[in-house]
Simulated assay, not measured.
Amino acid sequence: MSVIELTTFTVKPDNTAAMLAARPGMVDAFRRDRRGFVAAKLIRVAEDTWLDLVEWTDDTAWDESRAKGGDRPEIAAFFATIDTLVSSNRGVRYDDAEDGRRAVRTVAYGPHPSQVGELYLPAGDGPFPVVVLVHGGYWTAMFDRRQVTPLADDLVGAGFAVWNIEYRRLGEEGGGWPGTFDDVAAAIDHLDGLDERLDLTKVQVVGHSAGGQLAKYLASRTDGKVQLQGAVSLAGVLDLVEADKDRLGSVFTDPDAEEPAGAPPAQAPEFAPVVVANAGQGIPFWLLGGHHDEVPDRYAEVTRPATVPLLTIHGEADDVVASKYAGDPVEFDGANHFDVINPAHRSWRVVRDWLTDRLA
């Protein structure tokens, strides 16, 4: 289940040796620097014409790599040997399993670049139960859906279709109140008619951190086209009132703050300056356009009780989101904020079993 980048290029015969010599360094740089890189195969189709097949885990990985271009010396050295770029296209690898229809595709549910989701489908005709994934990252544009693609792969292997959604976040146009909340609701409703193999009577949502708060918000809706059957919050910020009192996220303004345990690098660090500039009064203040005593109706709207079963999971060693924000969670000793989105961690096995049990 991968995205394939198919690039055709020409190399002058007297540059062929230099291109082949630069190739191992380029591939090694991809392995070290490019999230989602799987493998690359170089095929000579004529004396001066080559086909490069590069495999990525998903569309976002491919998009990120294209945006980076030749930013590493080893990659730039390889590109410098190329004479002409003939074409570059996207393909999908079809697995040799059942009917070969395992695929991932990116689908827009609105006009903004962040109003998209990636739909993962198991092999077969379905109908498949659906899990909607909502990533975290303080609701900011520094972080995106790539954080939870390992969970998507695990769920597809368990027979679920997965809708890994993106949404407008703080730092980009339309992010915050009400755009962020409108987007996640629109993304859920976009499942209606998206694919005939989806079982829309069995849709559940899983969110991490800020995404946990958004998952609970989605679980409180009763007027959408698609109704949820269950929701899971992984290290979620469910008590926004308390988080606002504590100025959650103001740590971004501290240049000496330590990185949280297990934290991956930001997917879009270019948004860091705008986050630092707006985090002083806490991220909930920025998200909702005021403190709780200034806009209480907004806080009330986005923290309504869930109307479907809600499972809350929290790591006992979470140094990002305090357990007091999570209600009454199932806690896991020694687990940090990011362990709960590791499909190999014992907490995820509890979540996947819970999602499966909801289908009975």
Rank of each mutant, 00 (worst) to 15 (best):
L119M: 03
L119K: 01
L119V: 03
L121N: 01
L121A: 08
P122A: 05
A123E: 13
G124P: 00
G124H: 03
D125F: 09
D125V: 15
D125M: 08
D125P: 08
G126D: 02
F128T: 01
P129C: 14
P129K: 11
V130R: 00
V130E: 00
V130D: 00
V132F: 14
V132L: 15
V132P: 01
L133G: 05
V134M: 09
H135W: 14
H135V: 15
H135T: 12
H135C: 04
H135M: 13
H135Y: 10
G136Y: 03
G136E: 08
G137R: 07
W139K: 12
W139M: 06
W139E: 07
A141T: 15
M142T: 03
M142P: 07
M142G: 14
M142A: 09
F143A: 13
F143R: 13
D144W: 09
D144Q: 14
R145S: 15
R145A: 09
R146T: 15
R146W: 13
R146A: 10
R146I: 07
R146Y: 15
R146K: 14
Q147Y: 11
Q147T: 10
Q147D: 09
Q147S: 11
Q147E: 11
V148N: 10
V148P: 04
T149R: 06
T149I: 08
P150M: 14
P150L: 15
P150S: 08
L151F: 09
L151R: 02
L151S: 04
L151Y: 04
A152H: 05
D153W: 13
D153E: 05
D154N: 07
L155G: 00
L155D: 01
V156R: 14
V156Y: 02
G157W: 14
G157F: 06
G157T: 09
A158S: 08
A158H: 06
A158D: 05
G159M: 15
G159I: 07
F160Y: 10
A161P: 10
V162H: 02
V162L: 12
V162G: 10
W163Q: 10
W163R: 10
N164S: 11
N164C: 11
I165W: 01
I165T: 14
I165R: 01
I165A: 13
I165Y: 11
Y167G: 00
Y167V: 06
R168E: 12
R168T: 11
R168L: 12
R169P: 05
R169Q: 11
L170F: 05
L170E: 03
G171A: 12
G171F: 02
G171V: 09
G171R: 04
E172R: 13
E173T: 06
E173R: 10
E173W: 10
G175L: 09
G176V: 12
G176E: 13
W177A: 08
P178C: 09
G179N: 02
T180R: 07
D182T: 06
D182S: 05
D183V: 14
A185N: 06
A185V: 11
A185D: 02
A186T: 02
A186L: 07
A187F: 09
A187P: 00
I188S: 02
D189E: 06
D189S: 08
H190S: 14
L191F: 09
D192H: 05
D192N: 04
G193K: 13
G193V: 11
G193Q: 05
L194F: 03
L194G: 10
L194H: 01
L194M: 10
L194E: 01
L194I: 08
D195H: 05
E196A: 13
E196V: 09
E196Y: 07
R197F: 13
